[in-house]
């Protein structure tokens, strides 16, 4: 019971923080706090297998996936907390309060008999007991889960695979385009400038400096340039790629 009274306030506070933080990375860390505390509560509730699964699957796999996507779409950007639909936030909080108090009062009215406990069910080991139930009563649900996982993996692959909107440029066409750009706009014909790697910054993300001390933007790989919000103009090289899908 001690574990519960220590962890419950932590969990509620972390979950409440999820509603107010301005950075998505902080939200992910708060969610990790809730999930780790839940794992410990599973251990208290005699579910050691779910304790391991919660840590491996939730904090290990799902939150890592969240963090990867966060890094891809820009972890630096601060989230806007401006309300777009008038009165929506007040109504949402009111509805939440009503739902919460309804649930808490309804559950508070119930008196449960003292819990049976899982000593009998876990006598042959928790994992063995779960396997017994999983592969007898729930074997069809288990097999349907396999189909679900394969469908999800395929769906993610299809969605993550970018469609080529324009035909691939051949080497000959690329050479012709560069010479044409040199003739029309005077753009440098040779390769892009190398990044500036100095004694103090040993990173390819360090831009090269021109003789007058200004930063040469073209010297950084454009995947290292942090993504910009929609209202700011893209770098010219980026705009050439992204604008094929129409105006934003």
């Amino acid at each position: 019971m001690t574990a519960f009274w220590v962890l419950a306030p932590v969990m509620v506070a972390a979950a409440l923080g999820l509603l107010f933080v301005r950075k998505a990375v902080h939200a992910a860390l708060l969610l990790a706090t809730v999930m780790m505390s839940l794992a410990v509560l599973y251990l208290v509730l005699e579910a050691p297998f779910l304790f391991a699964v919660q840590i491996i699957v939730y904090t290990g796999a799902i939150l890592m996936l969240f963090l990867f996507v966060l890094m891809l779409i820009g972890a630096e950007s601060r989230l806007s907390l401006v309300e777009t639909i008038k009165g929506q936030r007040v109504l949402a909080v009111l509805g939440g309060l009503v739902l919460g108090s309804l649930l808490v009062i309804a559950i508070g009215q119930v008196t449960l008999a003292s819990p049976v406990g899982l000593e009998a069910a876990n006598s042959g080991g928790n994992v063995e007991g779960l396997a017994d139930v999983l592969f007898s009563t729930y074997v069809f649900a288990f097999e349907a889960t396999a189909a679900l996982l394969i469908t999800a993996a395929l769906g993610a692959m299809v969605l993550a695979h970018p469609e080529r909107l324009t035909p691939k440029e051949s080497q000959q066409e690329m050479a012709a385009r560069r010479v044409r750009e040199y003739a029309e706009h005077g753009r440098h014909l040779g390769p892009l400038p190398a990044p500036g790697v100095y004694a103090r910054h040993n990173s390819v993300a360090t831009p090269a400096l021109a003789p007058d001390g200004s930063v040469i933007e073209a010297s950084i790989n454009r995947t290292l340039v942090p993504p910009r919000p929609a209202d700011e103009p893209d770098l010219p090289e980026l705009a050439a790629d992204e604008d094929e899908e129409g105006p934003q």
């Binding site: 579910a47 449960l112 819990p115 049976v116 406990g117 899982l118 069910a121 876990n122 139930v133 009563t137």
Partner: peptide
């Protein structure tokens, strides 16, 4: 699951 003493809830 702990209240009822079987493992269906955990599954």
């Amino acid at each position: 699951a702990r209240q009822h003493g079987n493992l269906d809830g955990q599954v």
